[in-house]
């Protein structure tokens, strides 16, 4: 453990709070502040971001004084896979259509699991899930999602 950061969780929470607070404060300065009696659009966000910066500094201070538990690992790879699969769904839905977007989301995210193996049972389940979604959301509820998107000229 580093000699300065004694409690990493508190320390990084402090960094996050003061970071977000700082950004919000800078942006809020673009909005008219007004006065306490007649607040402008900048009043509330400015006060809140100062508060957040304050809490952030307190957490930073605590992180450097008090010993705390360590972080444990950060599952970057798994997080990246799950988030990328979700974003890919969003990207593919209007373009490739629901069916392909779903298959990418299901199989893409599944690779994040250590238990992932390509097997017939899982594939069958995935196809059943796609069929379920098509039937329920598109046929049943009529959500505006196309089965095949703009890439297929729909």
């Amino acid at each position: 453990m580093s000699p300065i950061i004694k409690s990493p969780k508190d320390f990084w929470t402090g960094v996050m709070y003061s970071g977000f607070g700082g950004i919000a404060f800078v942006i809020s300065r673009d909005y008219a502040f007004g006065s306490a009696g007649r607040m402008g659009p900048g009043y509330f966000p400015s006060v809140l971001s100062c508060l957040l910066i304050g809490f952030g500094i307190l957490a930073l201070a605590r992180g450097m004084r008090k010993d705390g538990t360590a972080f444990g690992g950060f599952a970057w790879r798994k997080a990246a896979i799950v988030l990328a699969a979700t974003a890919a769904f969003g990207f593919l839905l209007p373009r490739a259509g629901l069916i392909i977007a779903l298959l990418v989301l299901i199989f893409g995210s599944a690779t994040a699991s250590t238990h992932f193996r390509f097997e017939w049972r899982a594939t069958l389940l995935a196809l059943a899930l796609v069929a379920f979604c098509v039937l329920v959301f598109v046929t049943g509820l009529g959500l505006p999602m196309r089965l095949f998107g703009s890439w297929f000229g729909a």
Partner: peptide, 20 residues
């Protein structure tokens, strides 16, 4: 249900739900 089967399904419903 084994979690590695369950979580892609949860993701699917979250994604469609949020889209809707």
């Amino acid at each position: 249900v084994p979690y590695h089967f369950l979580f892609p399904a949860i993701l699917v419903f979250c994604a469609i739900g949020v889209f809707s």
